[in-house]
Design a protein around this nucleic acid. Structure first.
Length: 224
DNA sequence: TCATTAAATTGTT
DNA sequence: AACAATTTAATGA
């Protein structure tokens, strides 16, 4: 299991922080371990922390009155989220649930706003984060209901790797096909077929509980 | 370290 | 949805 320091060193906004700033950030953050199915935060909770995924995988879901749940985004290790609600000092808009055993980092809003006031790289990170999320959201709206399952899977995979632009060469997603099925809203056997199509197209490599992305641009444009 | 078994995951119909 | 095949994890010699 990865540690808080692993998350911080791979997060681009920490690059230009001084040792003291780093220490202040590190000591303010609270780390929490989550079992599969556990909530990182509930819809309606006051958004007083910014959340980073240290390890594992969490999903953002909205629950309708009828009890149907729709997954908006999957957040793998190294992603940060919740800045929107923290910035607006509003309640959380969605439930966030661990898809498997995960570890999250909770940064208090005081630290969050302090970084906004002091660090330009942090501001830049938040800015691009908000901008990209808007793009993803509109793209999802535009296509998800219309596309073939293959294309929906392709987009879901591309979106999952998107948050980690800088960090690294982490091109692998550890995710079972069953979990991916819940994510995309398709049956497991349909996912299995879709993955094989994408693999034959040379865009991904499928292994046991693991998907390696070979051509992220190809995935984004799949079916378009 | 290697072999056996159980559990989880994946491919196919 | 059900079944077979494959991979991983666990156990014990």
């Amino acid at each position: 299991m990865r540690s808080l320091d692993d998350l911080l060193t791979t997060s681009p906004w920490t690059q230009e922080l001084s040792a003291e700033q780093m220490q202040r950030v590190r000591s303010a953050i609270i780390v929490r371990d989550l079992q599969p199915g556990c909530y990182a935060c509930h819809k309606g909770d006051p958004a007083n922390v910014w959340i980073g995924v240290v390890d594992g995988l969490v999903k953002m879901v909205a629950i309708s009155a009828a009890g149907k749940s729709a997954t908006f985004a999957a957040l793998p290790a190294n992603s940060w989220f919740g800045e929107g609600s923290v910035l607006k000092r509003e309640a959380r808009k969605y439930d966030v649930i661990a898809l498997r055993e995960s570890r999250v980092a909770l940064m208090p809003e005081a630290t969050f706003f302090w970084l906004l006031d002091t660090s330009i790289p942090f501001n830049r990170f938040i800015l691009t984060q908000l901008n990209e999320r808007l793009g993803q959201f509109m793209g999802a709206f535009e296509h998800d209901r219309l596309l073939e399952p293959e294309a929906r899977v392709a987009r879901a995979l591309a979106n999952m790797l998107h948050p980690q632009l800088y960090p690294g060469h982490e091109r692998c997603i550890e995710l079972s096909q069953d979990e991916l099925g819940h994510l995309v809203g398709a049956s497991r056997q349909r996912i299995s077929q879709a993955l094989q199509v994408l693999e034959k197209a040379g865009m991904i490599k499928v292994e046991y509980r693991m998907i390696e992305i070979l051509d992220i641009d190809g995935l984004r444009g799949f079916g378009a």
